[in-house]
Write a protein that binds this DNA or RNA. Sequence first.
DNA 1: GGTCAGCCTG
DNA 2: CAGGCTGACC
Length: 649
Amino acid sequence: MIPYQLQGSPLVSRRKEDPTDGRRVPEQGRDPATSGHGQGLKTEPCFQRDPLLSSPGTSLVSQLLSHTVVSRSLDPCTLFPSSRPVGLPQGYELGAPPAEGAQALALPRTRAPAPVPGAGDREPLSDEHLRAKRARVESIIQGMSLPPTPQAPGTGVEGGVGQDREKGSEMSWEGRRKPRVPQPQRGAGVAGRGAPGRGSPHAAGCQQLKEQLCVLEQQLRWLQERFSQVCDPGDAAQPLGGAELAGKAGDRPGRDVAAAACRPHKAAPWGSSPGADGPEGMQEDEGTQEDTGGLPSVARVLSQALKHELAGVTSRVVDSVLTSMWPKAAGHLLQQHPGPGVAARGEHFPAGKCRKPLAKSSPVGALGSPPPEAASLPSGNSLGPHGSSFSPTAVRNPHQAPGVGYTLGSAVPSAQEGRLLGQLLGYGHWGSPPVPQRCPPEAPDPHWGAPRLRPSAVRQQRCPLGPCSLSRPPGAAACWLSLTPRRTQEALTPGHLKKAKLMFFFTRYPSSALLRSYFLDVQFSRCITSQLIKWFSNFREFYYIQVEKFARQALLEGVADAGALRVSRDSELFRALNMHYNKGNDFQVPGRFLEVASLTLREFFSAVRAGKDADPSWKKPIYKIISKLDSHIPEVFKAVGCSQELLRS
DNA sequence: GGTCAGCCTG
DNA sequence: CAGGCTGACC
C-alpha cells in the first residue's frame, strides 16, 4: 500500500470552513448522564450496599407492628398485668439494663395514645384497646432494646444494639456504612475484647465473634427469663398466638441472620436456638417455651424481637471484626489475589501486564524512563490469546524503588490499598478511604516527592479550565492547597494516558462516567474529566484521519468494492493505529476493534467515493455510526495500579 | 452560561 | 498532545 498523501484531503484543505463538521455527532452514543453540564461530575455512582451488612434497617418495633397479627397477639396488659414498670436488675453482669431501661419500660403508661374509652374496659380486641396495647408493647419493646447507657466496661455490644436501634428506623445503608470504615479503636473496643492472640487475624476474629455472641446469648437468656417471670401464666391463652404469629413474624428480614448467628448456641436453655430454622423454627420455639410456663405468643414475639436485635448486633460485631482486621487481610489479598477482573486479563495483556494492582505499585518513579528490561518485556512475544497474563512470578523491576515518584510517597500504596478495598467492598469511588492520600501525616518533601514526568506529562497537569482546587470539598481545602504543588494523585500520568489509549480499542466515545469508573486511582475533577475527554477526542481525531487517509488511498488504488476493504492485523492502517495507541505492541488488540476500523474504513471509502466529502459535515453520519460501536471495556482496566503497570511496558 | 465535540494550530 | 476556537446543546 502506498501511503496516502494528505494533499488535497478535505481535512487539510478545508479549515474553518465547516464549523459544523461532525458537531455533536456522537451524542446518541454518549451516556446521557454525562452529556452536557457535567452531570457525571456531580453524581457519584457505584454506591453499593454492603453485602456483609445484612442487618435490616427497619426497627423491630415497626416490623412487629407491621404485622397486624403480631400486634393483635401482643397484649401489654397481659405482659404487665400489674401496670407497674418492670425494672431490670442492676446487677446484670454485662452492664445491666439500668434505670434508664426501667424508665423506658414505664413509658407505655404515659405514652399510650388513645385512652381506651371507658377506662377499665377490658373488652378484648376492641380497636382502641388494641391500639393502646400496641403502643404499650411498642414502648416496652423499645425499652427492652434500649442501650444501657452506663455501659459496663467492655460491653460494646449493647452500644451496638443501641446504635442500631436509634438508626434503624430511618437509616439506610449509608448510616450503617460508617462503621465499616476501618476504626482501629472501635474495633479494639468492640471486637478486640477477646485479647486476640498472635494467631491469624481470622482466628482471632472468630474468637471475638464467639465471645460476643455468647454475651448476646446470655442477654437474651436473661431477658427471656425475665419475661417468663413477669408474664401471668393465667393469661397465657391468647387466641391468636401460635401458628399464625409464627407464620407472620417468621418472615421478617433478619431472621435468617439471627438464626445463623444463634445456631452455635442451640443448647440455650431458654428455648431452641432463637430462630431455629425456617418457619418451622417457630413451632419449635413454641414447644420449648412450655418449659418456661410463659406466654407462648408473647414469648415468641419477644423472641423474634430479640432475634432481630441480635441480628443487628451480630452484623455490627462481624462488621467491627472485619473492619478491624480487613486492612491486613486486604494486604494479603493484594499479594495473593490479582484483584478484580484478573480473569479477564489473559485475553489482552501478555504475561506480566497490569498485574499486582496495588500494594507495591509503584510509583511512577520510572516515569518516562522505563528501564530497559521493562521496555523489552512484552514486545509482542507473548500475545497468547488466552494465556494467563497474571504472572505472580514475574520479575519486578529492581530500579523501581518503592515510594519514589508518586508525590505522596509512602502514602500512595495505602491509598491504593484503600481503593482496592473499596472495590472489594463494593464501595465504589467515594467509598474508599478518601483522605490519606491527600493528607498524609508526614508530607513528603516536595522535591523528592515530585513526580518525574516528562515535559508533556507536566503540561498535562495544567488545568486549562482554571484551578482544579475549586472543586475540592471545603474541608480539605487547607490540606489540598498545601499539597497542590506536589499532588499527583489528582493528575493524570503517562500511565493513565497509555491506559486511555488502550481503552480506545474498546470505546471511542467514553462517557465521563465510564472514565470515572475505569480510572479509579484518579481523583476526578472537572479538570481531569476534561483532560480525559480531550484525550479521547484526540484519539478519535487521529483515528478518523488515519482511516480517511487509507480510504482515500484505497479509492486511488482503484478499489471498487467497499466490502473488500478490511482492516487486518497486517494492514498498514492497523499498524498505524497500533503504533499510536499500542506503541509497545504489548496489548492484544481486540478483534472487535478491527471490525470497527473496517467499518469505519468502508464508510469513509463509500462516502468519498460518493462525493459526499463535498458536504462540510459529511463525516457526521460516519461519526454517528462509529459512536454506536463502542464495546465493553474489560474489567481489568479498572484494576488499580494498571496505569502504573502499563508504564513499564 | 456551562459543557462538550470537533477543528485547527503549534 | 494541549490549547484556542466555534458551534451545538441544555
